[in-house]
Nucleic acid binder design. Sequence first.
DNA 1: TTTCTCTTTTTACATCTGTGATCTATTTAC
DNA 2: GTAAATAGATCACAGATGTAAAAAGAGAAA
Lengths: 143, 143
Amino acid sequence: MTKTMDSNITDSEWEVMRVVWAQNKTTSKDIRDIIENKKNWKPATTKTLIGRLVDKGVLNTEKDGNKYIYSTNLKESDFLKSTLDQTFDNICNKDVGKIIADLISKSTLSFRDIEELEKVLEMKKEDAVDEVPCNCVPGQCNC
Amino acid sequence: MTKTMDSNITDSEWEVMRVVWAQNKTTSKDIRDIIENKKNWKPATTKTLIGRLVDKGVLNTEKDGNKYIYSTNLKESDFLKSTLDQTFDNICNKDVGKIIADLISKSTLSFRDIEELEKVLEMKKEDAVDEVPCNCVPGQCNC
DNA sequence: TTTCTCTTTTTACATCTGTGATCTATTTAC
DNA sequence: GTAAATAGATCACAGATGTAAAAAGAGAAA
């Protein structure tokens, strides 16, 4: 059930998607207005990105007079996961633990987050291994 | 001291860098031979990537007869961190805990890793907050 | 109904990426 | 010492990305 995202989105496109995810249904003007607080984009830029997302099938459109209402049925978390997977593909499995430790250290977490993580770790003990196997091609890591 | 990487590398370039990181000092032939086990690249492709990395100042060269010895003084972990930072820039701080939990769940970890993570979590309690503040631009998340 | 305004569609264009062919300067094997 | 194999340098080229202007269509205002 862990399907890999077939469509990737770029950083700029992500900016647009965040608005759609937060708003659920929205118009190009909404998107422009919201992003204006963050990026110095000309209106045309936002529209181009919206267009590309529609082309990729990431955004759905629904005509409303002379404009469109945009929405998506793809989940932010899935995109995020596929991005992270791609990043982790670049390193040795053996290092994953350390990386996660780094992430935790540098993140701002709530007490609830920590509790949750402790719970996950507890469960993780069930399928923990003695030694994480290296998954690298010989010569690309020194395990 | 947390300097943000000024130079970014692409996925293909990363493939080359992994060899350099693992080998410390290496030649273009070494790189080609090692990557051959993984990618169907023509020799010229590897050389192009090496050249780009040299241009970017990521790889150092040292002449040795008619060839070069390549090395780097940049750390894999720094590139990784900057890549991860960029990914986390795309989401709300509030969601970071959950994302990390997901990462843990899907990763293969050793008992030692888990212990280490528990330790980090324990320390993390010291600067944990009641509620992680949302860092998003209004309209880009529904906190 | 004419004009203005907003939306979409079309087109543009420089840079970055992935992938590789060629040409040139060396080396090394005969 | 000349031919074959290498290593590096130069050039190529299509597709992805970031960023945007220009054109065209449709509703709103006058």
